[in-house]
Structure formats: structure tokens, C-alpha cells
Design a protein around this nucleic acid. Structure first.
Length: 191
DNA sequence: GACCAGATTGTCT
DNA sequence: GACAATCTGGTCA
């Protein structure tokens, strides 16, 4: 089952946690790739100093302030892109960052894009999975409930997942907030 | 395995 | 002009 708009309308922490175990599917021109989401982070709105939304709406982060359930893809460090899911009520500026996937379908295409064959190196980081899945900046703002990029629920299995909560990675503000979530014991997470 | 520097450019102050 | 929600490849152990 695909996640519907109402799912994304919840706050970023809930969405980030419930995305664990679900399936990210990209139907690209080169082929279909599927990955199971195993690590996420929550970025809140104006009260979270580490969030792009902290200083209000700008051209770059405008998508975060739009309707939930859309893709927010941003460019950073001069060479990398990261993929987020916009969450919360329209206008609050929250998002869930997808940090790692367990690659499931389209392995050959993924290996080709990533230029490595080590399965643990394919999607173990936000910029890596963007490259592995063939996610491009033109998908910024695209609707995850109807576009080429979609997310499907893991079904009732998701209830059994043991979630580890930890501080977020790679930020210089609000480093103590426990807003990173990953599946306990999973081999495909970053780090 | 841990630690460190370099890459490289859009965006905001 | 500074810096960034990162990755890779190097060194040293």
C-alpha cells in the first residue's frame, strides 16, 4: 500500500519513525529501483536550529513549506544531493531526511550508478542513496503519492521493528536532540 | 579502525 | 565571503 497524504501530514518525528521498514520506489527512465528505508532523521520547522526551515522560507527551502508528501531535494557541499520527505501541516516547514536504504531491486543499475559492488556501500548515506536511486534535482517538489518516486508501507511487519533513537549526524546546531532513527541491528545504516 | 583533508558550488548574510 | 543535513581516499596504527 502506498502512503497517502494524511500519513505525511503528521509531525516529522512520527513520519520519520514510521518510514523505517517501508519501501522507496523510483521508476526512472533507466529502470526501476527499490530500497527499504532503514535510517531517517527528523528536521523540524522554525524551532529547530539545525533545520533549513529555521530561518524561514527561502528560494532553496520553499518546498519544505509546501504541502506534505512531496520530495525536498537539496544540494550541499558543492557536489551532493539529499532527499527528504515534507511532513506536517502545510506551511510548518518540517521534513524527514532519508539517510540509508537496504537495496532490494535494480541492484545492477544501482551498482552501475554508484560505481561499486559492495552492497553495504550502495545506499548507506543520504547522498549515496540519492545517487543509487537515480534521484535528480528535477524531482524536487514532486508528489510522492503520484509521481515516479513513491513510498510504500511495510505493512503490519513495521510494528515489530525495533527502533534506535540517536542524535543527528553532520550538523553543527542542536547536536543533542535525539531525532535520528534507525532499525536496530541493520547492516545497511550509515556509519 | 580512527582520524583528516580535499573536492566543489549554490545559497544566504 | 563563509559555509554546508557529505563522500572518498589517504595516512597511521
Amino acid at each position: 500500500m502506498i502512503f497517502k497524504r494524511d500519513f505525511y501530514r503528521q509531525n516529522a518525528v512520527i513520519v520519520a519513525r514510521k518510514l523505517l521498514g517501508s519501501y522507496l520506489v523510483h521508476q526512472s527512465p533507466e529502470g526501476k529501483t527499490v530500497g527499504r528505508i532503514v535510517e531517517t532523521e527528523a528536521y523540524l520547522g522554525k524551532d529547530d536550529p539545525a533545520s533549513h526551515a529555521y530561518r524561514g522560507k527561502t528560494r532553496r527551502n520553499a518546498v519544505m513549506f509546501g504541502p506534505p508528501g512531496h520530495a525536498y531535494i537539496y544540494f550541499t557541499y558543492g557536489m551532493h544531493y539529499c532527499f527528504n520527505v515534507v511532513t506536517g501541516k502545510n506551511g510548518v516547514g518540517e521534513a524527514a531526511l532519508i539517510r540509508a536504504l537496504e537495496p532490494l531491486e535494480g541492484l545492477e543499475l544501482i551498482k552501475q550508478r554508484r560505481k561499486t559492488v559492495n552492497v553495504y556501500q550502495l545506499c548507506s548515506g543520504p547522498a549515496k542513496l540519492v545517487q543509487a536511486m537515480g534521484i535528480t534535482p528535477d524531482l524536487n517538489g514532486s508528489d510522492l503519492t503520484s509521481g515516479p518516486l513513491q513510498i510504500f508501507t511495510a505493512g503490519i511487519d513495521n510494528e515489530k521493528i525495533e527502533i534506535i533513537t540517536a542524535p543527528r549526524i553532520g550538523i553543527s546546531q542542536a547536536q543533542d536532540l535525539p531525532l535520528r532513527f534507525y532499525i536496530k541491528g541493520n547492516s545497511y545504516i550509515s556509519h
